[in-house]
Deep mutational scan, measured.
Amino acid sequence: DAPDEFRDPLMDTLMTDPVRLPSGTIMDRSIILRHLLNSPTDPFNRQTLTESMLEPVPELKEQIQAWMR
């Protein structure tokens, strides 16, 4: 099983494109984008959230890719 820090906190699946929300939570980009289609909010604190506020986490993405090899 993947380490917890590699798993999306909402869907508990392996992240492939991790992004940091303004709240500091790291999620998979595809999952948070799907959530934003229904509700333009951070799913953990209900603060306003837009796609432009998502910050890529390239170092975590590299760690996940290395773990998958």
Rank of each mutant, 00 (worst) to 15 (best):
N45L: 07
L60I: 06
H35F: 11
D4K: 15
P40T: 11
T13S: 10
V19Y: 06
N38C: 13
P43I: 02
R29A: 07
P22T: 02
E62V: 10
R7P: 02
D28C: 08
I64F: 01
P56D: 13
T16I: 14
A66P: 01
A2N: 06
Q47K: 10
M53L: 07
Q65E: 15
I64P: 00
Q47G: 10
E55S: 10
D28H: 02
L21R: 01
T13D: 05
P18G: 02
R7V: 06
T13R: 07
A66H: 10
L21T: 04
L10V: 09
L60Q: 01
L14S: 05
S30M: 12
R46G: 15
L14Y: 06
N45G: 09
Q47M: 12
L36K: 00
S39C: 11
R20D: 00
P18D: 00
M11S: 14
S52H: 12
I64Q: 00
T48Q: 12
S52F: 11
P56W: 07
P9T: 04
P40K: 14
E55T: 13
D1M: 14
S39F: 10
D8N: 04
S23M: 04
E51T: 09
I26D: 01
T13G: 06
S52R: 10
E62Q: 13
V57G: 03
M27Q: 01
H35W: 15
T25Y: 15
D28F: 09
D17Q: 04
Q63W: 08
K61S: 08
D17Y: 06
Q63K: 15
T48D: 12
H35M: 11
S30L: 12
T25Q: 12
Q65L: 15
P3L: 05
T41W: 15
D42Q: 00
M68E: 08
P9Y: 06
E62R: 13
E5H: 15
D4G: 14
P3C: 09
R20I: 07
W67D: 02
M27D: 03
W67N: 03
A66I: 12
P56R: 08
P43M: 03
S23V: 02
M11W: 09
D1G: 13
R29Y: 08
D17T: 03
D12A: 12
Q63P: 00
D12R: 15
A2Q: 06
M11Y: 11
Q63M: 13
R34V: 11
D17L: 04
K61P: 01
T48E: 13
F6S: 02
N38F: 14
D8G: 03
P9W: 07
E5Y: 13
S39D: 13
D42C: 07
D1E: 14
A66Q: 13
D12C: 15
R46I: 07
L60R: 01
P58R: 09
I64M: 04
P3G: 05
P18H: 03
E59P: 06
T16V: 13
I31F: 04
I26T: 05
M15V: 01
T41R: 08
M11K: 09
S30C: 13
Q65D: 14
A2L: 13
P18E: 00
D17G: 02
E55F: 08
G24Q: 04
P22I: 04
K61H: 07
A66W: 08
R34Y: 11
L14T: 06
R7C: 10
Q47W: 09
L54K: 02
R34T: 12
R20Y: 05
Q65A: 13
A2E: 07
D4N: 14
P43S: 02
I64H: 00
H35Y: 11
E62F: 11
T13Q: 08
I31S: 12
A66C: 10
P40H: 12
I31A: 09
E62C: 12
R7Q: 06
